[in-house]
Each structure stands twice: as structure tokens, then as C-alpha cells.
Design a protein around this nucleic acid. Structure first.
Lengths: 226, 226
DNA sequence: GAATTAAATTGAACGTGTTCAAATTCGTTG
DNA sequence: CAACGAATTTGAACACGTTCAATTTAATTC
């Protein structure tokens, strides 16, 4: 819907209406929270009728997803640039994860709403669902980059699963962030720092013989759920 | 509201109406799922007007919470009984975890709805919130029992954190179960079996020298978030 | 440039969860 | 037992997210 119609340039008029609705919704979500912002009010602020919002967005939740998708691409370019230098794995992972939290910080109310609906498997914005596959793949690819450009050698059997595993780890941190009531979510940042140490240490340990049976079990498990 | 009014016995008439509404809601939630069961239909099946449901329950979600509260105590006592025999750690953990899934199985649709509200940090039934501390502590104590009665020796520094860690692991499995669309949730059971192998292996490995720095880091992290 | 097709926009209407003033039931009191 | 008041029950009404037939606007075709 409204994907570039291919006629003229990029159908500027409609594109602008869509942008106005999205912008109005983000404002209201962050002002009042997801539940207390009404579609009627969003449409009114964007200067269109109620139904227009549904012409451009499938649902109220879809507005949040549009924001999420937009911020993911922004993240993409941001991280790609920052990832250009340095080979230290911990620093590279921190770039991605802390970068994401920086982005999240400004839209906490909105993202809490996102996660609440996202947790429902039937929701189109479930982070594990089909509809968000593109976003998820892009995020996972970022971790693959971080690994590839680093000086750490991941065992061959584990390597193909590692990006997905790191993405899952990040999701866990985000879940913690949702619950984190500490000022500026410093608890999350502390957890990120400390757990990142462990994660990197674990990756480096993975290649040594005593870890072999554990690693094999892990790989077998990961393969079964690919 | 409607807590024992203290006059006569337990105000049998009202109590029965309340029970009828709760029963009707559980039926409909499991028949159609949370979203497709309407309050009007629930009230109709219970033989009362729509508003009556709101006299006894604060909201539609509160109906799910009422079920959760009722079934929670049953869960604990059941698992405790089964834990009486055997010293194999893996078997003991499996008793707790698989036991929980057995009880979950009958009310899958309903529990999915529950989780949706529970994930909201502001919800009174958030599994990480203050209001559910007693339930959570009981569940964690169950894992402490499983460890204590087993033949596996957990390193002293790690031991006090282990029950909470296992509870967290169980929460992860439950999250997976929520999403698991496979028949009879066999994927969850496969994941439980395989990951349980890894968990037990990791616990047994934890005491060996090469793991010491990693273990220390883990303990430090756990201590910071106690 | 008129006719035709597609895109964009409208706002009333539907079914929902929830609220609430009014009506009813019921135990208690005088 | 009459009367009072609290507990219970009712169903219309409200605001919401969402849908959709109808209308307007823009683009394309001949």
C-alpha cells in the first residue's frame, strides 16, 4: 500500500500526508502514551479525517511499527558508519547495543507500548513474527558485521548461529530496559557493560577443548531451531 | 470489592454469581481466545447483564488474573510433592519445568492473554513486580529445593544466585512456549530437553579452574542485581 | 480536453470495553 | 412487618479502534 507507485517521482502529496500522520502519532504517543492517544486526535492533528489514517496505516499499532522500522534503518546507517573502525569485539558489540539504547531513550513511552503489543504472538509487530522478518534480519546482519570485522575467531560450527544468538541477547537486554525504572536506565547500561564482558569472554573460551561438549550441545540445539 | 462482607457466612448468592461469571469467561476465553470473547457474551452466558461482570471484576483482563491467582497455589503444591524422590539434578529440574507446562497446557489461549498483560511493567501481575513477589519467591524456592536435594555441588560463590538464575531460565522457556505453535508445543519440550542438558552441564563445569574468571564475572553481575 | 480509471479522502456507522444513574433485591432494624 | 439502606443488577450511553460506501481529487487515455 502506497509503495512507490512508479508513475511520477514518489507521489509527493500522498507521501507527505503519510508523513504528517506518522509524525502526529509519534508526538501524541510520547505526550500521552499509546493508550491515551486516540486515532481521532492523531488524524485531527495531522489535518485529515479519521479514515485517512487507516488508508496509510493498517492499525494504531502499525503506526508504532512504522516508527520502529524507520528507526531500524536509521540505526543501520548509524552503526555501519561507527563500525568502520576498530577490531575489538567488545567495542563493536557495544557500538550496536548502546547505539540502539541511545535511539530508544527519546521514545521510551512509545517503545513500552510497542513491546506490550509485540509480545502477543498474533500481533503483526511481534519481533519473532513473519511481518517483521526484514527488520529482524537487518538487525542480525549488523551483528554478523560486528563479528566479521573483529579479531576474534569464532569456532566454525558455532559461527553461523552467533549473529542470531547475539540478537537474542540484545532482545533480552531490551526487555530489561523496558522494566528498568532507574534514572536514565543506568541499571540497563550497567547490565549491558557487565554482561557484555561475559559474552565476549564466553565467545573467546568457546574454542578451547574443555568447552567442546558444551559447544556441541549448543550448536545442536541452535541447529534444531533454525 | 466483594471480599467477604463479614455479615453472614460468605454471602453465598453473590459469591455464586461471581463464580458463574468467572466460569463463563474461562469457557469463552478457551473457546474463542481472549480478544474474540466479548464481555456481553460472557455476561449473557452467566445469565446476567453486562454491567454485572464489572461489578465483580474490574476489567476483562481482571477475569484472567482471577484465574491466575486461583491456579497459582495449585501449581506450587503439585510440584513440591513430586520433588520428594531422586537426586539427579536434571530429573529434578525437569520435574518442576515440565510440571509447569503440563498445568499450562489446558489453558493455553488464556495464558497467552495473561502474558500479554503481565509483560506490562505497570500491570499488577507483572512477574517481576512487587505485587507478585510472594509467588515469585515460592517458585524460586522450588528451584532451591531441587538443587539442595541433588547430588550436584554448586560452587559456593554461585550457589546463592543459582535458584534465581534457574527461575529466569524457566521464564525464558515459558516465553518460548507462548510463541510455540507446534502441535502440543513439542518444540518447547524439545527445547526444554536440550537446553536442560546444557544447563546441567554448565553447572557441573562451573567449578573447574578454566571457568573461574567467567564464573567470577557472572557472580559479580548477579550480585549487582540482587 | 473530455472521458475514464485510479488514488486519496471523508465521515457516518459498527462492535467493542467500560461507566453509571437508576431500578431492584435483600438483610437488618425499629 | 414496615421501612430503611446497602448490596446487587440492569441496560442505555460513552469513547474508542476500525470499516466502508460514498465522494472528491489526481492521473491517464483517447
Amino acid at each position: 500500500m502506497s509503495r512507490n507507485p512508479g508513475r511520477q517521482r514518489s507521489s509527493s502529496k500522498a507521501e507527505e500526508t503519510r508523513a504528517r500522520i506518522l509524525e502526529a502519532s509519534l508526538e501524541l504517543f510520547n505526550e500521552r502514551g499509546f493508550d491515551d492517544a486516540t486515532m481521532r486526535e492523531i488524524a485531527a492533528r495531522a489535518g485529515v479525517a479519521t479514515g485517512a489514517a487507516y488508508y496509510y496505516f493498517a492499525s494504531k499499532e502499525d503506526l508504532v511499527m512504522a516508527f520502529y522500522r524507520a528507526s531500524q534503518t536509521e540505526m543501520q546507517t548509524m552503526a555501519a558508519a561507527r563500525l568502520a573502525t576498530g577490531t575489538d569485539l567488545r567495542a563493536r558489540l557495544d557500538t550496536i547495543i548502546s547505539g540502539k539504547f541511545e535511539q530508544f531513550a527519546a521514545n521510551r513511552l512509545l517503545l513500552r507500548a510497542l513491546f506490550r503489543t509485540a509480545i502477543d504472538p498474533d500481533s503483526p509487530i511481534s519481533p519473532f513474527g513473519d511481518a517483521t522478518a526484514d527488520i529482524r534480519d537487518a538487525a542480525i546482519a549488523l551483528f554478523a558485521d560486528a563479528l566479521d570485522g573483529s579479531d576474534v575467531r569464532v569456532p566454525k560450527d558455532l559461527a553461523p548461529h552467533m549473529p542470531r544468538l547475539l540478537w537474542l541477547y540484545q532482545m533480552g537486554l531490551i526487555l530489561f530496559w523496558i522494566y528498568d525504572r532507574s534514572e536514565n536506565q543506568q541499571k540497563t547500561h550497567l547490565l549491558t557493560a557487565k554482561s557484555l564482558d561475559m559474552v565476549v569472554r564466553l565467545i573467546k573460551l568457546a574454542k578451547f577443548p574443555p568447552m567442546r561438549p558444551l559447544r556441541k550441545a549448543a550448536v545442536e540445539l541452535l541447529a534444531a531451531f533454525a
